[in-house]
Design a binder for these strands. Sequence first.
DNA 1: CTGGTCATTTGATATTCGTCAAGCCCCAGG
DNA 2: CCTGGGGCTTGACGAATATCAAATGACCAG
Lengths: 246, 246
Amino acid sequence: MRPDTDPQIRHLHLFRDMAQAHFADLMTASYVQAFPPGLEMIRQGDPADFLHIVLEGSVELVGQWAGRECTMAVVRPVSTFILAACIRDAPYLMTARTLERTRIVLVPASDLRAMFRRDAEFAVAVINELAACYRSVVRNAKSMKLRNSRERVASYLLRQSMLAGGVPTYTLAVEKRLLASYLGMTPENLSRTLKSLEADGVKIDGARVIITDRTRLTALVQPDKLIDGPDPVADSTGSGLPLTYG
Amino acid sequence: MRPDTDPQIRHLHLFRDMAQAHFADLMTASYVQAFPPGLEMIRQGDPADFLHIVLEGSVELVGQWAGRECTMAVVRPVSTFILAACIRDAPYLMTARTLERTRIVLVPASDLRAMFRRDAEFAVAVINELAACYRSVVRNAKSMKLRNSRERVASYLLRQSMLAGGVPTYTLAVEKRLLASYLGMTPENLSRTLKSLEADGVKIDGARVIITDRTRLTALVQPDKLIDGPDPVADSTGSGLPLTYG
DNA sequence: CTGGTCATTTGATATTCGTCAAGCCCCAGG
DNA sequence: CCTGGGGCTTGACGAATATCAAATGACCAG
């Protein structure tokens, strides 16, 4: 693998604490690949041969069933995805599709599995990563089951503002079509909901989000650390929708 | 801790492979406690001080928000729960409430965190457990987002039949009220849905489920290994609703 | 046996949400 | 410049689901 990409990856919590020699071993076995936009890199059900690390671009993770599909996450640099499938040596549960031109590091799953037996620090890092991912999906499930679509949209908008540092205005990181699917609704419904939220303190102008009355919006959302995070010691990666979904 | 409970716990994948001396250390630091029915053992948001292991009885894990709540899982013997919170040393994401008289082993989270640094086999077991739990929640999220309530009910009924060995008739392991919440619907709706499913090959008589036309039901459900499982090398514990939710 | 509590069922109704169809807007490609 | 496609929006409609209310049934305690 090209050594210039190493430092970015080395910074990830997953790889930060392992022995340099071990990290080098993993990187030697890995390689970088570039994908054009809209390409299915992984189809759900495929055997999990590689841990994927997004270097540039963005990747959509989608679940599919009976001809339907839903966006489960959007992964942005620099973060990993489908760690769990690699570890279990089990089929991918989600399809991965590039949203734009994307560079990916592919780490052979077998090397990965061998490595956390060799390097105790790495094992601990994997444990922490999986636990964090797990908790994030549980949060997500809670949000889906406890909130209606309006509340989900509002909480999403407020949360993104917080992640951006509490700014009153920002730009949506993903297409509304994807956001709708991620939030478990149709694009039409999202569009209507966004408009209706103008009465509750957020105005949407294209991809621009303007929080006009934070107090009012917060009252509607009732943000909850156990759903919206952040987790203490959160592993803040740069994911566009929610977070890493290792 | 009373030594007679050790063997059951030792059988769990989580503890099976660790050194006996280390296992004994963990058990020494742990203790057993019995809870009456309907008691909140854990409130969501509490610090995660103990890994819980159900020895007898059953425990409901519920998510709560804005005065609403939903059942996320029901845990049955012998299995663990809230592993991830213990590992992250983070607040519990779910409230745990006994459904009946329940005996629980409490393993101090700090000992647990220390242990996977001492015992590499245990670390590997934790990794596998977390990865499995993670995948199971992702499955769940897919089911919630890709299927409507009728399909979720039908797939649940068929899956339970499969888990029982493909039997044509069995008894629901949980109250319908809980099942409804777990499936993301109201009890009224579940009741109506169950009745309507008689036209598709399942008859419900009280808590009794009779599959009258498996072919028809299967056609409706379109079971999918990537949602309904089983995962290859699945860690089949004895959970009543879905699975362990460590 | 009897009263009370709670789960379940049923019906009527309201709300949410998805579907269908059309039009708009933006942008890439000719 | 024009043209076409795709994302977004809007309106009308219908289906799915929740809510409210009441009746029934199961089970437990007295």
